[in-house]
């Protein structure tokens, strides 16, 4: 063992790398659990890639075969059901953890100078994450996936002037059909994964260059440091194990999250199932569009929200990061969160 290690060392000089990147890389000792969300997300992306590739070995991107291909996959291939469920439920968990990650960054003010670029790359990743879910959701071509996609793409129709064109552009036609499936498939398996890889790499690169922020509260000079490995890696693994447990509770005990009865029926464009709604992470937007009397206003509010989020580091330029010292900002965040959750619950119940 030692000999092999030496042989490799002579040729690669990895020890120095290991030292600079892991054992000698010092991070603040008081990093809290929220700082582990990033590595949970990395783990989840890894899971999506691995299970996605396995799904890809049987999936057929044609409206006439798609549904049976995923059903047969779960019926006939050993552990196919498990792979399919993990991919679907982990996608939900991925969005949830993305939200937690973003929220903690907001509340701790870590998007502030000099981390503006990291924030922006994060907002882009969030958008990509939602888009990956939207595109993947259609692929099984079930009643649920067909109609939820119809409803979700319909929302784009509220955009002034170009709305109808946007709907058509998203679907590749007037309605969701083979063209839509084809392009969502291409996006989902060959465009989004490399984009993810690239932007996640940029996100991490920026984090390493600027250094991770310390939680707000203690002045920079007084913050104690610990090595990234093993100290912080253990904390990351603790969080990862926890979220894996959450994932498997979903997979084994509440698969209905992703596979309610409508997900077990093939798509039928002529028959609208009752009570069809988009996925939970789109429900707030969907409900907002429904309740705001003027649809331009509804979509305008959402556009504004998105733009504010994207440009936040340039709008909020104060140095103060402690949430309680930024009462106005905190109030806005809490109110928006309450609004989001309220609309989601409302959308779910109505």
């Amino acid at each position: 063992m030692g000999k092999i290690a030496d042989w490799v060392e002579e040729r690669v000089h990895y020890r120095e790398l290991v030292h600079s990147q892991f054992t000698g890389y010092m991070v603040p000792a008081n990093l809290n659990v929220w700082y582990s969300m990033g590595s949970v997300l990395l783990m989840l992306i890894g899971i999506q890639f691995a299970t996605g590739i396995l799904l890809l070995t049987h999936y057929i991107p044609q409206t006439s075969h798609a549904f049976n291909s995923v059903m047969d996959l779960s019926e006939k291939i050993p552990f196919g059901w498990l792979i399919r469920r993990i991919h679907a439920i982990a996608a939900n968990l991925f969005v949830l953890v993305l939200m937690l990650h973003m929220l903690s960054v907001l509340i701790m003010g870590s998007y502030k100078k000099p981390r503006e670029l990291q924030w922006i790359s994060g907002v882009v990743l969030f958008g990509l994450g939602l888009f990956a879910c939207l595109s993947g959701y259609l692929l099984p071509w079930s009643q649920l996936s067909y109609w939820a996609t119809t409803v979700a793409t319909n929302s784009a129709g509220s955009v002034p002037i170009i709305g109808d064109d946007m709907v058509r552009w998203l679907r590749g036609g007037d309605r969701v059909d083979q063209t839509t499936l084809g392009r969502f498939y291409a996006l989902h398996v060959s465009v989004l994964p490399p984009l993810f890889t690239f932007i996640v790499a940029a996100h991490l690169f920026l984090m390493r260059r600027v250094g991770i922020s310390a939680p707000p509260g203690i002045p920079k000079e007084q913050v104690k440091k610990v090595p990234f490995f093993p100290h912080f890696v253990l904390e990351d693994m603790r969080a990862s194990y926890f979220f894996l447990a959450v994932l498997f509770v979903g997979v084994f005990f509440v698969p209905q999250i992703s596979f309610p009865p409508d997900a077990m029926e093939p798509a039928d464009p002529l028959f609208t199932p009752p009570h069809i709604k988009p996925e939970w992470y789109f429900l707030a937007n969907y409900q907002l569009l429904k309740v705001v009397p003027n649809e331009f206003l509804g979509i305008g509010l959402q556009g504004l929200g998105g733009a504010l989020l994207l440009l936040l580091p340039f709008l909020d330029r104060g140095q103060e990061r402690r949430p309680l010292k930024r009462p106005l900002f905190l109030a806005v965040v809490v109110a928006s969160l309450a609004g989001f959750i309220g609309l989601t619950v409302w959308g779910h119940l109505s």
């Binding site: 610990v226 093993p230 100290h231 253990l234 904390e235 693994m237 603790r238 969080a239 194990y241 926890f242 894996l244 447990a245 498997f248 509770v249 997979v251 084994f252 005990f253």
Partner: peptide, 26 residues
């Protein structure tokens, strides 16, 4: 499947606990 899932989840939670104490011990 449920039984297997229950056992797996229990192991994962134990793993999280293990990591927690390993970190504390450092």
């Amino acid at each position: 499947r449920r039984l297997a899932g229950g056992v797996l989840t229990a192991f994962l939670l134990l793993g999280a606990l293990g990591m927690h104490f390993a970190r504390k011990s450092l």
